[in-house]
Design a protein around this nucleic acid. Structure first.
Length: 637
DNA sequence: CTAGGGTTAG
């Protein structure tokens, strides 16, 4: 056997490895420990779940001089990688005198799976250029492909053809995955169709490709054609719907998965929690939480963080906070969720205090952290703090503001009425995003800055960047000034270029069932009771001095008609349904797909006072907590 | 003894 373990260089190299791990160096002479390498290898297999044990076995291997035995060495390297320590894997590799093709393939793979694509490719190129290194085989190629971008991947594809690796189903699937990542659907499909044998894995890779490029229906079609389904392909399909913003279909598929007897894993739960978060469905989110606890899904960092995010987005900061406090360690992602969560609930001071706690704990913020921080400032109207955070992100933390940060910043200035200043910030950006202009337009609408608003809207419309929101905001400004002919002109224009106003829709969850309402909805089985309740509320509102803000209505109607139009907004229907179908004193939680309208905001404040109910409203932008006649947003939103 | 599909935060 040509084991390298006997080479004298090995022991010295091993000493360095251990020193770099901060462990005691081995004795200078090889110990008489009789553990044979085969025994060590099986020990590694059996202790693979504990990094501590692996480190101990590594020490024993060095003491007995077997650490460079090719199998022991490889298994140690793989163990470190599977524990998320490619750094330790690399250190083993560096101290191995003449790595064989197994170790080369494995070290490239270790970096590729951890997203360290650059290092993986660097190692691959070292392998190709080093005269003493072995020739790469199909294993090496499939690992290198995992780290390859489209252009390099095409070159590797050519070499694969030349060396007939393409008939290897693993290489073929890795190629398919490479094209899928590079969004070359045509190439991926061709590979898939020409594959001699299609495994469940290659099917899943193709389904992923369709789902990621937005063709979710084609993905579904292929999914249904799969002869066998495992947990991964269910997860792919469920998450595809989630990512495309089709939570209802994700949910239906999840239910079907459970019925079929397939056991969900952590990834399924992560995806389904995102569904709960999208729907704002606290009951369902809680059900998923207890489901995962009852079905032995390990409560990993990722799962805890996804739960925190779900609880924030479903309106329960208390549950989010409890989970956060129970975390054994908190990484930046967990902090980000907590900060963003408090920002979206308008708890700006709390969010900022979490941010400073995080810095004190020595956690480096990321670009995402600053989105939460700037959002907190924006929702709280904290202009000076916002400016100072915006400038400090690059200065103190070396994070260059992205378009999203400019979005938050422009929003912050605009909301506070500093539209000119916001305009100046925008002018300083090379390629301002239409989202930024829309945000500024919203500020102009809010602060009745007609002239600038018109200018921005024109800019958006003439550049083909306008969406329904652009027209609605502009219409709102004209309607406020009673320029009905302008409003009508806009409506014609919308028709002409085929933009449709997104219909407002509000949902409420009662007894684990989601009820949806649109404006003037009569389709609910309890419509009669709902409208009776609405009428009762209207009477009470009037008695409490409520005056409808008819200026928010975008049609030139009689005053009485405007009032009627407002009274049947989707959020009112949902609240009325909540009042008749939940116990007195309980909190009513509703979710609206658009921003809550000014009139409904005023009415909801009063309803909370009259009925003594807390009402939590999630709109497109943030949460409003109504209690005893006040809203947590302080009427600033 | 090495290889292929799904993963959280705005």
């Amino acid at each position: 056997m040509s084991s390298t373990a006997a080479k004298p260089a090995g022991a010295g190299a091993g000493t360095k490895t251990l020193n770099s791990l901060g462990r005691r160096p081995p004795p200078s002479s090889v110990s008489s420990n009789p553990l044979p390498p085969e025994h060590l290898a099986s020990l590694i297999d059996r202790c693979s779940s504990s990094l501590r044990h692996i480190l101990q076995i590594h020490a024993v291997a060095v003491r007995s001089g077997h650490h460079l035995h090719p199998i022991v060495n490889l298994k140690l390297q793989r163990s470190y990688s599977s524990h998320g320590r490619p750094d330790l894997s690399l250190s083993i590799f560096r101290f191995t005198p003449d790595p064989n093709v197994f170790l080369w393939s494995s070290i490239i793979h270790s970096h590729a799976v951890h997203g360290l694509h650059h290092t993986a490719l660097l190692l691959f190129s070292q392998m190709l250029s080093s005269p003493s290194a072995p020739l790469p085989n199909a294993f090496t190629f499939s690992s290198a492909l995992k780290a390859s971008p489209l252009n390099l991947g095409r070159a590797l594809h050519a070499i694969s053809l030349k060396r007939s690796f393409d008939s290897d189903t693993y290489v073929a699937t890795a190629l398919l995955d490479m094209y899928a990542r590079g969004a070359d659907v045509a190439a991926a499909r061709k590979l898939f169709e020409l594959m001699p044998t299609r495994s469940i894995v290659s099917f899943t890779a193709m389904v992923t490709c369709y789902a990621k490029t937005g063709d979710i229906d084609l993905a579904r079609q292929l999914f249904e054609e799969m002869p066998d389904k495992d947990c991964v392909c269910w997860n792919t399909m469920i998450d595809g719907y989630t990512q495309q913003g089709r939570p209802d279909e994700a949910l239906l598929l999840f239910r079907r998965m459970l019925r079929s007897g397939m056991m969900p894993d952590e990834v399924t739960v992560l995806s389904v929690l995102a569904v709960a978060a999208q729907l704002g469905s606290l009951e369902f989110g809680k059900w998923v939480h207890s489901y995962s606890a009852n079905n032995r899904i390990p409560l990993t960092m990722r799962l805890r963080t996804a739960l925190i995010d779900m609880y924030c987005k479903c309106g329960s900061l208390e549950d989010a906070r409890m989970l956060f406090d129970e975390m054994p360690h908190r990484d930046v992602v967990a902090w980000n969720s907590l900060i963003a969560g408090h920002a979206m609930h308008g708890q700006s001071r709390q969010a900022l205090s979490f941010f400073s706690e995080m810095l004190k704990a020595g956690i480096q913020p990321t670009d995402i952290t600053f989105i939460g921080v700037l959002n907190a400032c924006s929702h709280g109207g904290l202009v000076e703090e916002g400016k100072s955070f915006f400038s400090s992100m690059e200065k103190d933390h070396g994070i260059e503001p992205k378009v999203e940060h400019y979005g938050c910043f422009v929003d912050l200035l605009g909301r506070a009425g500093l539209v000119e200043e916001a305009y100046e910030v925008m002018s300083g950006i090379a390629r301002p995003d239409p989202v930024l202009w829309s945000s500024l337009l919203a500020a102009c609408s809010l602060h009745k800055r007609m002239e600038l608003g018109e200018k921005i809207a024109e800019l958006l419309i003439t550049n083909g960047l306008a969406n329904s929101g652009t027209f609605v905001l502009l219409s709102k400004m004209y309607a406020a000034e009673r320029k009905w002919e302008e409003v009508a002109r806009l409506r014609r224009k919308m028709k002409e270029i085929g933009v449709e106003k997104e219909p407002g829709c509000t949902s409420i969850e009662v007894d684990r069932k989601v009820h949806e309402f649109v404006v003037g909805d009569l389709s609910h089985p309890k419509s009669k009771e709902i409208y009776a309740m609405l009428e009762e509320i209207d009477g009470l509102l009037e008695a409490h001095g409520y005056v409808p803000q008819t200026e928010v209505v975008l049609h030139d109607l009689e005053e009485a008609e405007k009032r009627r139009a407002l009274a049947v907004h989707s959020e009112r229907l949902a609240i009325a349904f909540g009042l008749i179908s939940t116990r007195p004193g309980t909190t009513i939680r509703i979710v609206k797909n658009l921003r809550v309208c000014g009139d409904c905001h005023a009415a909801t404040k009063l309803i909370s006072k009259i009925t003594g109910r807390k009402i939590v409203v999630r709109d497109r932008n943030r949460f409003h907590h109504f209690e005893n006649g006040c809203c947590s947003c302080g009427d600033f939103w």
